[in-house]
């Protein structure tokens, strides 16, 4: 059985302007030890999805329907108390702005030990410190920097410390929301490699959320492409990137400059992302879609199964 199975998840926000359909009818599953990447542009609902999995939506956010089965139990049916148990211990998160998650007035090692002790009261202070030391070795921070304060760390080291914190309780699943966006390429590369090797070492599953397709294509086994709150293509890394099917995935790939291969003219997607309050009927991508037909205007697209793992949410492909 899959570690995480999400079925027909729909999430929205109540706002003064109306109800915002942030995520609609998203289904996917994640095997233990595998990594799944969600790719999409800002406002496509990928961050909301990650927050919902942790049950950390803001007060006006509502999970309208769906199920989130984690190890066979529906996370939506858990009480707040049970959820707090699960967070960090079973499911940990690395945030977009994680570097600011460290408290500036405490030493790094104390902060990580703190995280350990709150979730495992049986653990002694010494044991916790020992574990913290091991974690630092894993994430590649020199031992003599353990007793530093956050401001003494560079951005990359802070990110490593955050990863150590996420690993502290040996979770089964880590949700990483743009974990390297603010970092320089070389540091980003090093951190991603670090996460990758730790994932293999501890057999952790990872949900990787990013706007950068190239990073996701390198990092993840499976990939979900999101557009305007909906999943539009889902499949194995190779399938999605070598033979994309959905017009949005294709367009996204051809609007990315690369350093390898022939230099080609970028074909940007015309227009802007739609407003999530007044959803157009039919396919949400049709205004920007080169191959949209008449039926795309009125009829909602359907899932097209290409291979057992590869599917696309589009009616214009036959």
């Amino acid at each position: 059985m899959a570690l995480l199975e999400v079925e027909n998840l729909s999430i929205g926000y109540h706002s003064q302007k109306g109800y915002i359909h942030a995520v609609e009818d998203v289904s996917f599953s994640l095997e233990a030890g595998k990594s799944l990447g969600f790719v999409g542009e800002s406002g496509c609902g990928k961050t909301t999805l990650g927050m919902a999995l942790m049950r950390l939506l803001p007060p006006n956010g509502v999970i309208r329907e769906g199920r989130m089965l984690f190890e066979g139990n529906d996370l939506l049916k858990k009480s707040d108390e049970e959820m707090r148990e699960i967070r960090w211990k079973k499911v940990a998160m690395i945030f977009q702005a994680a570097m600011n998650a460290l408290n500036p007035v405490h030493r790094i090692e104390d902060q990580i030990a703190e995280a350990l002790l709150t979730h495992d009261p049986m653990c002694s202070k010494e044991e916790a410190m020992k574990q913290v030391e091991d974690l630092f070795v894993f994430v590649g921070i020199p031992k003599d920097r353990m007793r530093d304060y956050p401001h003494q760390y560079s951005g990359g080291m802070k990110q490593r410390a955050i990863i150590a914190m996420a690993l502290a309780c040996r979770p089964a699943l880590i949700i990483a929301d743009e974990p390297t966006t603010a970092l320089d390429v070389i540091v980003q590369d090093q951190i991603l490699k670090e996460i990758k090797s730790l994932q293999e070492l501890f057999k952790i599953s990872i949900i990787f959320i990013s706007h950068d397709i190239s990073v996701v294509s390198d990092f993840c086994d499976d990939i979900g492409v999101m557009y305007a709150g909906q999943l539009v293509e889902y499949g194995d890394r190779q399938e999605v990137f070598t033979s994309p099917v959905h017009p949005y995935t294709k367009a996204l790939l051809s609007s990315y400059p690369t350093v390898t291969g022939e230099k080609y003219k970028l074909e940007p997607i015309p227009g802007e992302t739609p407003n999530l309050i007044n959803q157009p009927s039919g396919c949400r991508f049709r205004h920007r879609c080169p191959s949209a037909g008449v039926s795309c205007k009125t009829e909602s697209p359907v899932w097209l199964k290409l291979t057992p793992t590869h599917r696309a949410f589009c009616s214009s492909i036959r």
């Binding site: 926000y13 706002s15 939506l57 803001p58 407003n275």
Partner: peptide, 21 residues
């Protein structure tokens, strides 16, 4: 940790407000 949710949420709200006004 609560800060992030509120922060990102506010940003998305801002964007929406900006579009509709």
């Amino acid at each position: 940790m609560g800060r992030f949710e509120i922060g990102s949420y506010e940003m998305s709200m801002e964007k929406l407000n900006k579009k509709s006004l």
